Computed example of a mutant assay.
Amino acid sequence: MYKLVNLVRVFFAGILILALTGCVSAPPVTPKAAQNLRLYVFNCGTIDVADISVFHPGIGKGEHKRLTDSCYLIVHPKGTLMWDTGLPDALINIPEGKTVYNLFTMHVTRTLASQLQEIGYAPDTINYLGISHMHSDHIGNVNLFPKATLLMQQEEYAAAFGPEPGKYGFSPENYPTLHANPVKQLTGDYDVFGDGTVIIKRTLGHTPGHQALFVKLPKTGNVLLSGDLVHFTENWEHKYVPGFNYDKAQSLKTMDEVAQFLKDNHAVLWIQHDLEQNQEIKHAPKYYE
């Protein structure tokens, strides 16, 4: 199990994804003005897991599971926020997918750049870039957003740009442009647009500075985008913690706090990697408001 956990950390550092050099970019488009808050959901790839027990040690040894990789655009009258950027768009050039250690097989069938273009938002016009955490399957296309202000917990920023990023499963070669982005380092919850509708929630445990995103949609209701607080519904219901999490005790504490937060705010948890839940959620160009 120790060896397997280390392989997972190497995967999240994305060392083999680095062979997928280059990115798929979209031609310039004029962003649409927003009158009301909107949430767009994008398909940012899938990950086939050959042994799901890496996500809940001792359970499901050798069982296969497919995870989705979701990312989101929040359009607010005061600006735009990209939340996570999924697997690299360059994976679209490998139709059979990219397999790492006979454990993870990654596919991209639609680029994030093309999905943004379809709804009329050029990446270089996005105001804010919120990253739940710096594992490779959440930062695959950060280079598309060089002008966006990075919103990140200070612990995550320190780990990602400090002397030992690999210790946390991060690889700077996967985000070489990100250090040049304007940045606002956070030390807790953060109200992105100042009106309580889009709030970054500090949810430590999976990584040193993990965060989730709370969105108050007037028509749809309140939604919390999970990041990797949990990876699928079974782990949420049973409070299973992956062996590769940075801090198991903190992960459990955060899960309890989030459960109470959801109850207090009548909110629904959207688990970003849960394929089955994700299939019930509408995707761009449709949107929630």
Rank of each mutant, 00 (worst) to 15 (best):
G60M: 02
A33R: 13
D51K: 04
M106V: 11
R66Y: 07
Q211E: 09
I92E: 12
N222A: 03
L116N: 00
D69S: 15
T254S: 14
D51R: 03
E155W: 13
H206Q: 12
P176T: 07
A148P: 08
C44L: 07
E289T: 12
L225F: 01
P163M: 05
A159C: 05
T177S: 12
Y40N: 05
L144N: 10
I126L: 04
Q277H: 02
M1L: 09
I17M: 14
G188A: 06
D191L: 08
K147E: 03
D84T: 08
N222S: 02
Q260G: 00
I52Y: 11
N235E: 15
P95N: 14
K201E: 00
K239Y: 01
H210A: 02
H76V: 03
N93E: 08
Y72G: 01
H56V: 03
T80L: 07
A180M: 11
A50G: 11
E173S: 13
L178S: 05
N245Y: 15
F42C: 05
Q154H: 12
F161Y: 14
A148E: 12
P163F: 09
A212V: 02
G169W: 04
M255G: 09
C44D: 10
N222K: 00
E96T: 06
P172F: 09
L67N: 12
I94G: 10
T254A: 14
D189C: 09
Y190F: 15
G86T: 10
I94L: 15
F244T: 03
K253W: 03
G14I: 10
K3V: 14
A19Y: 12
P88M: 15
G22F: 01
D84S: 11
Q250K: 15
Y121E: 12
Y157H: 06
G169Q: 04
H107G: 01
Y40S: 04
H266E: 12
A33E: 11
L112T: 13
P57W: 10
I59W: 08
D247H: 09
T197G: 06
L224E: 04
S251Q: 10
W236L: 00
R38H: 07
T80P: 03
L18D: 15
L91A: 03
G62D: 04
L18N: 15
E164T: 08
A13K: 12
Y2G: 09
L262W: 13
A33K: 14
K184T: 06
L213T: 00
H56Y: 06
H56N: 06
G86I: 11
K167G: 02
M134L: 14
K282W: 13
R110N: 14
N245F: 15
P57D: 10
K239T: 08
L225N: 00
V29Y: 04
G194P: 03
H210Y: 01
C44V: 05
G79A: 06
Y246T: 05
G58W: 04
R38W: 01
G209H: 02
Y121T: 13
Q185S: 15
K3D: 15
T203Q: 07
H273Y: 05
I139G: 06
I59G: 03
F104N: 08
G169L: 04
F42A: 06
F145E: 13
K263A: 08
